[in-house]
């Protein structure tokens, strides 16, 4: 009698615990969607801050914009109506700097993580531009006095961060789909900054460059396949056909992806596909472009006997791409650097 009562209590307890877990999980999921509601109330009133310590920011932009000095209102990916100032001078657009530079705009601050910045963009003009943390802490954002903030993903403005940013400056959010396709991102940012013409010209210039590279490599890529591998922390990643240098090599140049990539059903592929050394042993690609973050590591995977039996490795067709190059990045500048690398390596 006593026992069965106890038993009943325990069952009830377990049930309650389960319910609690469920409730928590639901609450966590629901909490994220509010960012969009708070509207981009901040208007162009922050503009005053712009001119004074503008420094390096957007000298080129000034002249371009002078012809079209009007405030405009655009709707961003979250449905916010964002009032874009007539002539933004101090723009913060973390991880979108490739597009800004392509459009001739110098950002007020550049994306960074504790152990680095986008190395390949430093020579392209970001050298000396102050850094801002990748996760955009509002205090840091304030300290730069921006007059326009462009964010590359709704996930960055979750938890009411949007309203905090938009109190600092008009904040325009790109959708993840737009960001994933650098051409779309470049066009969108061109639209936001009123530089549609420049964006279009840049895309044309890029396509021109693709054609040139194709012509130079005429006959050298026919029937060949190339694998792009990124090695970091004891793990190889295969760069997907739609991402970064993958989009350039497989998409723009039309090179065949390697056998071990095509074996994976398309819907199962990620941007960076983790690939075991065991699977890699079946790689039949003619060339391997390797971005090696394990340089100098004595027990690195590329020192293993197995790596050395891969046909492309045996044939000496492995090309290590410097960390400072752009193989893991997307954009017009990144893509052109990738094209240059391929041309240099395979062009002779």
């Amino acid at each position: 009698m006593l026992r069965s009562k106890k038993e009943g209590k325990r069952t009830a307890g377990m049930f309650a615990a389960l319910l609690l877990v469920l409730a928590l999980a639901l609450a966590a999921c629901g909490g994220n969607n509010n960012a969009g509601e708070s509207n981009g109330a901040a208007s162009g009133s922050d503009n005053a801050a712009g001119g004074t310590n503008g420094g390096t920011a957007g000298n080129g932009a000034e002249q371009e914009e002078a012809a079209n000095p009007q405030e405009r209102t655009l709707t961003d990916a979250l449905g916010n109506d964002v009032t874009i100032p007539a002539n933004p001078q101090r723009i913060i657009a973390p991880y979108l700097e490739d597009h800004l530079l392509t459009l001739g705009v110098m950002p007020a601050a550049q994306w960074s993580v504790p152990n680095g910045v986008q190395d390949y963009l430093q020579a392209a003009g970001l050298e000396g531009v102050p850094t801002i943390s990748y996760n955009l802490p509002p205090e840091e954002v304030v300290s730069f006095n921006p007059d326009l903030i462009i964010v590359n993903s709704p996930s960055l403005v979750q938890n009411d961060l949007y309203s905090q940013y938009s109190k600092i400056a008009p904040t325009f959010v790109l959708s993840d789909e737009t960001t994933a396709d650098w051409r779309a991102a470049l066009s969108k940012i061109g639209e936001v900054l009123g530089k549609e013409e420049e964006a279009k010209a840049a895309l044309e210039a890029y396509d021109q460059k693709v054609q040139e590279t194709k012509a130079k490599l005429e006959g050298k890529l026919e029937g060949k396949s190339i694998a792009i591998l990124w090695l970091t922390a004891k793990q190889f990643y295969m760069v997907d056909t739609k991402t970064a240098s993958g989009a350039v090599v497989y998409g723009d140049l039309g090179v065949n992806p390697p056998n071990i990539m095509t074996e994976i059903p398309e819907e199962n592929r990620a941007s960076w596909n983790p690939i075991s050394l065991e699977k890699l042993s079946e790689l039949t690609a003619d060339y391997i472009f390797l971005v090696n973050y394990e340089e100098g590591q004595t027990d690195s995977l590329i020192e293993s006997d197995l790596w050395k039996t891969i046909p492309a490795v045996k044939a000496g067709h492995v090309y290590e791409m410097d960390k400072n190059r752009s193989w893991l990045y997307s954009g017009a500048i990144a893509g052109q650097l990738v094209l240059e690398d391929i041309e240099r390596v395979l062009g002779e």
């Binding site: 065991e278 042993s281 079946e282 293993s304 006997d305 197995l306 039996t309 891969i310």
Partner: peptide, 12 residues
């Protein structure tokens, strides 16, 4: 030692 499949078995 020339065959990668042998290395897969033995080394991995």
């Amino acid at each position: 030692p020339e065959l990668s499949s042998h290395h897969v078995v033995r080394d991995l």
